[in-house]
Design a protein around this nucleic acid. Structure first.
Lengths: 165, 165
DNA sequence: CTCAGTGCAAACCGTTTGCAGAACG
DNA sequence: CGTTCTGCAAACGGTTTGCACTGAG
């Protein structure tokens, strides 16, 4: 049942479910509690691990189905950082719109805000007759820690840079 | 054999292969020719279709392996627009760094350049001790055509916006 | 001849789905 | 009690891999 220390934001999810005519089950509450209780960008595997660490065994299918509801509710964002699987991040207690710095060595994700990007989105969209709905700005590279521990990014490619053709 | 009308950029790929000690085969030349011959963002399925239309039957595995080489050579960029599969775009005859507008209704991809984004990348990275390697800016929404034909993006989520908590 | 490349089919892996049984209201 | 959810396992789909065969040098 795990009524212990349920994250307050879980109630918001409960409201969304009620609005949509879906019941709040203990599995849904548990998955939501894990997601709202972390400020990381969690993978399904990590979520499953957190649940198991609490002594709750919830099937992957249920986790996926609950994440789908959380994303629909707009309380949670889904990200694909090109790792071959998705990551999930709740949108509460943080700036609703933010961008990501992703370390190519350790995978750490850092968030940052930018107002310029909103202006840029607006302007570019206008120039193309495009109605923007959302954007994604990701900067990939090496985080401070990995730089210091001497991590390197392999670089191959043509010996003659294409610009010199 | 298809010596007919091979795209000149294929020779660059040949040079890369030679540099790496790999032979240029007719399959590799054909895949490269299709990619360099299009200014679209092609999926593997589309590449396979182009090859078939020319009367060439090349196995998917070979196409994937060749695309891997093309990406390594930095002559081709790999993109994931969240469709569940990858798209490939050659980097020649166009601005090497550019961003994408992606229509959520018809899937059309439009490119644009932005110098602000480079400055922004530089500044944000410096603020976080991050060494940037590349970035990705994608704006999702409705293209002009889809707007005119009355396309809509469904929107659900909480009835009470989270900002009002 | 030799060795890497190719093509087929099977494996992979994150994710989705079908269905029998459990749980909510 | 009916309806929805859950959990298992099988299915899915894009991508990767193993391996016998082919072909280039």
């Amino acid at each position: 049942m795990k009524t212990t220390a349920a994250h307050p934001f879980v109630r918001l999810f409960g409201r969304y479910l009620r609005d949509q005519g879906f019941p709040m089950t203990q599995q849904r509450a548990s998955v939501a509690d894990v997601v709202f209780g972390s400020d990381e960008h969690l993978s399904v595997e990590e979520i499953e691990g957190c649940l198991r660490a609490r002594g709750e065994r919830i099937g992957k299918a249920t986790i996926y189905r609950t994440l789908d509801l959380l994303v629909r509710s707009k309380l949670v964002d889904e990200h694909d950082f090109g790792e071959g699987f998705k990551r999930y991040e709740h949108r509460l207690s943080r700036q609703p719109v933010h961008e990501h710095l992703i370390c190519l060595s350790c995978g750490k994700v850092t968030e940052f805000r930018s107002s310029e990007i909103l202006r840029l989105e607006e302007r570019v969209a206008r120039e193309h007759g495009f109605r923007p709905s959302r954007h994604k700005l990701e900067i990939y590279g090496l985080c401070a820690d990995c730089r210091q521990s001497g991590a390197r990014l392999e670089d191959e490619g043509l010996t003659c840079p294409i610009e010199t053709i």
